[in-house]
């Protein structure tokens, strides 16, 4: 078994115009930098991107916005991007805002083979418009829940810290975020990793994503790992 591809360009080779992609990361933390750059080089357009955020103007998904490759964003928070704002106002870009937990759970549901889930978030708000709702007595409380459908994506593109030839993945700290529920949530999952190791080198008890969820893996290069908000305290 060998899921290793030569690099980002090979990994994204069959992503075509109009595809629906999941892209891992929270803000700029844990984003699949190499694949985003490869998608920009490839020039595919009309993409629907499911991603918690939309990058910043010159990094992350912002790079794909600049080249007008994205038709629609499905996100929970998109505040850090002027390019995004101007394309949204001009009507070039569609955006579907989804509560963050619902976004993660709709990825998770796809990965777990469940077509929909009932969630409380958004009940009584405009997020509930057009959605089925139902009352459940659950965990000692009665409440209203909304039916939220699992995402149906063509490709899931995630970034992990370590991975092996079988596609087993390990994340690092808060870079795990959406990469975990997205890994395995689309027809094809592409994983880029900082370290590619041999099967057996990762303690089986430490694997976050079993390789069955990953179809392509490669060692990424030149990670910038840009920090969005550098906050520090003084020594002493």
């Amino acid at each position: 078994m060998n899921k290793v591809v030569s690099g980002a360009d090979e990994a994204v080779r069959d992503i075509e115009n109009g595809a629906t992609l999941m892209l891992g990361g929270f803000g700029l933390c844990g984003i699949p930098e190499n694949c985003i750059e490869a998608l920009v080089r490839k020039g595919v357009s009309g993409l629907t991107c499911i991603s918690n955020n939309a990058g910043v103007d010159d990094f992350g998904i912002g790079l794909m916005l600049k080249t007008r490759q994205v038709k629609k964003m499905i996100s929970s928070y998109v505040g850090e991007n002027a390019e995004f704002e101007s394309q949204l106002l001009s009507g070039e870009l569609e955006v579907d805002l989804v509560p963050q937990g619902t976004l993660a759970t709709r990825c998770m549901a796809a990965k777990y083979g469940m077509p929909a889930v009932w969630v409380k978030a958004g009940f009584g708000t405009e997020v509930a418009e057009g959605k089925e709702s139902r009352r459940f007595a659950f965990q000692g409380e009665e409440g209203h829940y909304l039916l939220e459908t699992a995402f149906n994506a063509d490709f899931s593109i995630v970034k992990a810290w370590k991975g092996d030839r079988f596609g087993n993945l390990v994340f690092r700290k808060t870079a795990r975020n959406f990469n975990d529920p997205m890994a395995g949530a689309a027809k094809i999952t592409i994983a880029e990793v900082e370290e590619l190791v041999e099967p057996g080198e990762i303690d089986p008890d430490h694997i976050h994503i079993p390789g069955i969820f990953v179809q392509r893996i490669f060692k990424g290069n030149n990670y910038e790992k840009r920090i969005e908000q550098r906050t520090v305290r003084k020594r002493g």
Partner: peptide
């Protein structure tokens, strides 16, 4: 400009 609800609704 609406930035989104993030995790607030959840």
């Amino acid at each position: 400009m609406v930035k989104g609800m993030g995790g607030a609704m959840d």
